[in-house]
Amino acid sequence: MGAFTAVILAITILMSCLLIYVPNMHIIALQVEDEKLSGGRISVMDMLRSSEEALQEESAATRDSVLKGHQIRLTLPQNVTSASVSIDNIHVDKTIAITINGIGKDYFSNYPMRGASNNIVDVTYDSENLVGVIEITMDDVLEVQMTSEDEYIYFDFVDPHEIYDYVVVVDAGHGGNVPGATKQGVYEKDLNLDIVLELKKLFDRTDKNIGVYYTRTDDSNPSFENRVGLANDSEADLFLSVHNNSTASGRMSSINGTEVMYEGGDTTGESKSFSTLCLVHLLNELGSKSKGTVVGDEVYIIRMSEPPVALVEVGFMTNQKELDLLQDSEYQAKAAKALYDAVIEYLY
């Protein structure tokens, strides 16, 4: 009798444990998911694929009620509004980063993504200190449009030419651990970027409907493939690369002036036309000596460019006078204005 009682007691204890455990299975599953997320950025592309499959099985009316004619839908948690959402479109990497303040590592466990887009290659997610970043890798250069309604935010990915009259790609040469010419502690990469950032100010203020994409706006060094790839994949109307020159020996000399390289293999002649405009405007604005327009097909980004391309050598860093001028903010602003005027004249 004692043994029977012991067996019954053991069974009772086991059942009690199961009753406690089973209702919390979903909590344990979420904890496992949280542990997976706590390791850093993870891919949630499978969730998007599952959503696409589910939507295909649903009726058109149901799909429309979910997506409202948009491509992707995200759900915001309570007390998180669309004002907490920001978008950074990194065109040169074909990456769109969506940052949402107020969402944790379990966000996708509680709020699955819905929708589909044929242009999405991967979707990753990471969260730290309740700031979630959804990173979407695309197969093309696209613009992202966001629409919000109640607790939902919708995203659509569209061709830039559906938004802008023209698309221009601007490249600040060199960058990162590739400084370009270096004289007296001055790096060409910094001068190139300074001029491009001045040019960006002008495009940011323009009343023209131009989409301007930059290969870099910081001390990074995109690959040559990514630089010219941004121009080609966006089907840009113009590709402008900003550089500064030096003598072949690298020694200081009296050689000075402005030179612009173009694609000799461009049978339309548009690359040379654009380069000539850049040279004329730079000479007029800077008062520099003309070194002419030069075929630059040996340069990868020129040779591989599909849109008309101009690679500008603003001045010689191996000439003391021009090196001093190139470091002057007013001179940089003049160079930027010349390039802006050349682009506007060419397009309009």
Results as ranks from 00 to 15, higher is better:
H26F: 03
H26L: 06
I27L: 09
I27D: 09
I28S: 08
A29M: 11
A29Y: 10
A29K: 14
L30D: 06
Q31H: 13
Q31K: 12
V32W: 10
E33V: 03
E33G: 02
D34N: 11
D34A: 10
K36I: 10
S38V: 02
S38Y: 07
S38A: 11
G39L: 08
G40P: 04
G40E: 05
G40D: 06
R41V: 07
R41S: 12
R41D: 03
I42A: 01
I42Y: 01
S43N: 02
S43Q: 01
V44R: 01
M45S: 09
M45K: 05
D46N: 13
D46R: 11
M47D: 07
M47I: 05
M47K: 07
M47T: 01
M47Q: 13
L48R: 01
L48D: 00
R49D: 08
R49E: 11
R49V: 12
R49I: 12
R49M: 11
S50V: 10
S51P: 08
S51R: 04
E52T: 09
E52G: 09
E52W: 03
E53Q: 15
E53M: 15
A54T: 14
A54H: 08
A54D: 13
L55W: 02
L55R: 05
L55P: 01
L55Y: 04
L55M: 13
L55N: 07
Q56A: 09
Q56D: 08
E57F: 09
S59N: 06
S59V: 03
S59R: 02
S59P: 04
A60W: 11
A60H: 07
A61S: 05
A61P: 03
T62W: 00
T62E: 07
T62K: 06
R63H: 00
R63T: 00
R63Y: 00
D64S: 01
D64R: 02
S65L: 00
S65R: 00
L67I: 01
L67K: 02
L67A: 02
K68H: 05
K68Y: 02
K68Q: 07
K68M: 06
G69S: 02
G69N: 03
H70P: 01
H70K: 09
Q71K: 09
I72R: 03
R73Q: 11
R73E: 04
L74W: 14
L74I: 15
T75M: 15
L76H: 12
P77V: 13
P77R: 14
P77C: 13
Q78P: 13
Q78N: 15
N79F: 14
N79I: 13
V80P: 02
V80S: 05
V80W: 08
V80F: 11
T81A: 10
T81Y: 09
S82E: 15
S82W: 06
S82F: 06
S82N: 13
A83Q: 14
A83K: 15
S84K: 13
S84L: 06
S84R: 12
V85N: 03
V85K: 03
S86T: 14
S86R: 13
S86A: 11
I87L: 15
I87Y: 04
I87H: 04
D88F: 07
D88N: 14
D88P: 03
D88I: 09
N89Y: 06
N89W: 04
H91I: 03
H91A: 15
H91S: 15
H91E: 12
H91Q: 12
